[in-house]
């Protein structure tokens, strides 16, 4: 519960740092999404109140940009680059393999347990490494194949269950 309290304090701090400027709306949403991992409706209403703009405007901006999500994302956000270079070197099968492995239905991006989100991105500008997959925008995996990406995925899963065991142990 301390967590949510901190988030709310952070939310206020972000708005204050941007001096409630409407022109900073996108930056505010970016920073808030970092805190909450998505943009909850009530938080957007709060931002609209603080910036004194109609909530419909905030909703319009939040749904326009691909970066924003109004539903919770997974702990691990896996982005498959589908830029031209990646596409011609086979990014689609990688995307399919991931979705299949995680059992995502059509239109579904995030697994039910909120562990994984699979997205495509139009170009990461790392075309020399095509096809490219990133995990939480931190790890970059280049020259992927469907088999490689499943190995990466399983490694994350293994790390997770190890962590769980550790937690259970503790």
């Amino acid at each position: 519960m301390e967590g949510t309290g901190r988030k709310f304090e952070k939310l206020q701090e972000i708005i204050a740092r941007h001096e409630g400027k409407v022109s900073h709306l996108i930056a505010i949403l970016q920073e808030v999404q970092q805190e909450y991992r998505y943009l909850p409706e009530e938080v957007l209403t709060y931002i609209a109140t603080a910036l004194n703009i109609p909530p419909a405007v905030v909703y319009g901006v939040a749904t326009f940009y691909a970066q924003f999500s109004l539903v919770p994302k997974g702990k691990y956000v896996i982005r498959v680059c589908d830029g031209t270079a990646c596409h011609v070197r086979g990014s689609e099968p990688i995307h399919f393999a991931l979705r299949k492995e995680l059992g995502l239905a059509e239109g579904q991006q995030t697994t039910g347990d909120l562990q994984f989100t699979v997205e495509t991105v139009s170009c990461l500008g790392a075309c020399g490494l095509a096809p490219v997959v990133t995990i939480n925008d931190q790890e970059v995996h280049g020259q992927m194949t469907p088999e490689d990406v499943l190995r990466v995925l399983r490694a994350i899963k293994a790390g997770e269950s190890q962590e769980e065991r550790r937690e259970a142990h503790a």
Binding site: K21, V22, S23, H24, L25, I26, L29, Q30, V61, F64, Y65, A66, Q67, F68, V121, S122
Partner: peptide, 18 residues
């Protein structure tokens, strides 16, 4: 924030304006 069209100058301006 992830919109190709913002490379267009008037869209880019709108985006800077929030």
């Amino acid at each position: 924030a992830g919109a190709f069209v913002c490379g267009e100058e008037t869209a880019l301006i709108a985006s800077i304006e929030g």
